[in-house]
């Protein structure tokens, strides 16, 4: 296989990953690394570098569309980015000390967890936050458009969400993913922010988080231009296409199929990591 054929195949794979990632809300980055490492025989460090770049492209590319709808909350996002960017730096430094096999195992476990998170039903929330909490002090409470008009919301448990965001950032920096699933978990479940606000704000944060580790990866020589080129262009095109289709149809079956793909890739990564094939 020469460079031209290789690039075309990687581009097609990334296009599919970006498309399915946008359609299912799981993000394309989460399958790029296993795709490159398992199917294209790419060293996991190059795969992580290329994936990280595609994550920035997807997040920034989609932001304009989300902002227009008025869901994302700039203050919540910016405050939590302190945690995710410091976490991302920690993750990027950790990546140089952890063996590729161990990274593969951790990646596999994160894939299992992401598939689980996106498929379970969300439990109901308890009572509204008390006034005088961190969320009110930091003026995070806001409102968003719903079918029944403008609805206001209060933000709970800011320290808990902040802590989980640090974990999300570390995973992002270590594995080259957006870790949107963990970010949404922190906002939706821990901080009780409406789901729609959580997902759009998470998408907004992903690019900044990934940029914090991308500098370290670039400086360390993990980002290969020839490999990153088809990955970035493919995931970007795929996710924009997916976002267009998304407004028309959101298929439950597709989400289940994509989750099964993620589970299979996760199992293969864990197996290869444990048997030292990475």
């Amino acid at each position: 296989m020469n460079s031209l054929e290789f690039s075309l195949l990687v581009w097609l794979g990334s296009l599919a990953a970006g498309f399915l990632g946008a359609l299912t809300g799981l993000g394309g980055g989460v399958v790029i690394v296993p795709l490159l490492a398992l199917w294209f025989g790419v060293d996991i460090r190059y795969a992580i570098g290329a994936s990280l770049v595609s994550v920035i492209a997807t997040s920034s590319g989609a932001a304009a569309a989300y902002v227009k709808e008025g869901y994302s909350n700039l203050r919540i996002g910016m405050f939590l980015e302190i945690a995710t960017t410091i976490g991302a730096l920690a993750g990027a430094f950790l990546a140089a000390r952890v063996s590729p096999s161990a990274i593969a195992v951790i990646f596999g476990v994160v894939l299992f967890y992401s598939a689980y998170l996106s498929n379970r039903s969300r439990p109901e929330r308890p009572e509204p936050a008390r006034p005088g909490s961190w969320g009110t002090l930091l003026r995070m409470d806001s409102s968003y458009p719903t079918a029944e008009g403008i609805a206001s919301y209060r933000v709970h448990n800011v320290p808990g969400g902040f802590g989980l965001m640090f974990v999300a950032g570390t995973l992002s920096g270590l594995l080259g993913i957006g870790s949107g699933a963990v970010k949404v978990l922190a906002m939706d479940q821990v901080m009780h922010i409406p789901f729609k606000v959580s997902t759009t704000t998470s998408n907004f944060m992903i690019g900044v988080t990934a940029a914090a580790s991308a500098g370290v990866y670039l400086g360390r020589g993990y980002i290969d231009p020839v490999l990153s080129m088809p990955v970035m262009l493919g995931v970007l095109a795929g996710s924009m296409l997916g976002a267009k289709v998304l407004t028309r149809a959101r298929s439950r079956i597709l989400r289940i199929v994509f989750s099964l793909v993620i589970l299979a890739l996760g199992a293969e990564l864990v197996f290869n990591g444990l048997t030292g094939r990475m």
Binding site: D43, Y46, D224, M229, L233
Partner: peptide, 28 residues
């Protein structure tokens, strides 16, 4: 993306027939 696309197209025109190898990590 436009700059990446331009650089990528130039690379593939010039070196498209080379054999890629990302199995072994060397760094940039």
């Amino acid at each position: 993306a436009s700059v990446v696309l331009a650089g990528g197209a130039a690379y593939l025109v010039l070196y498209g027939s080379s054999i890629p190898d990302y199995r072994i990590f060397r760094g940039q």
